[in-house]
């Protein structure tokens, strides 16, 4: 077993490059703290079936685990300096 294709280590220190970010359409819809819920007579502000279909398709991406060779774990020590003046 290895990592799936969506978890690339190509970024080195791996600040996420946005690959794993929430889909923009969903992020925009929920930006004010609201949640994705279907439109009903009791919840007229909810999302329509077409909107939910679009959100669902935007959210779904990589799910499978595929064998892949990965590099070793590593620890990188940055600057370690101690200076003193008297």
């Amino acid at each position: 077993m290895g990592f799936n294709e969506g978890t690339s280590f190509a970024k080195g220190l791996r600040y996420d490059d946005g690959t794993r970010s929430l889909a923009p359409s969903v992020a925009e819809k929920t930006a004010d703290g609201s949640t994705l819920q279907p439109q009903t007579p009791f919840n007229p502000d909810g999302s329509t079936p077409q909107e939910l279909q679009n959100f669902g398709q935007d959210l779904s991406g990589v799910w499978d685990v595929k064998p892949k060779t990965i590099g070793a774990n590593f620890l990188l020590l940055g600057v370690m300096v101690k200076g003193s003046w008297q």
């Binding site: 220190l13 774990n73 620890l75 990188l76 020590l77 600057v79 370690m80 300096v81 101690k82 003046w85």
Partner: peptide, 20 residues
């Protein structure tokens, strides 16, 4: 359980001191 885990760490420390 089968698990593959990779960990990367970056640590940095800078200390400066002046004494009169």
């Amino acid at each position: 359980l089968q698990r593959t885990l990779r960990e990367v760490q970056l640590n940095g420390y800078l200390a400066l001191e002046a004494q009169y």
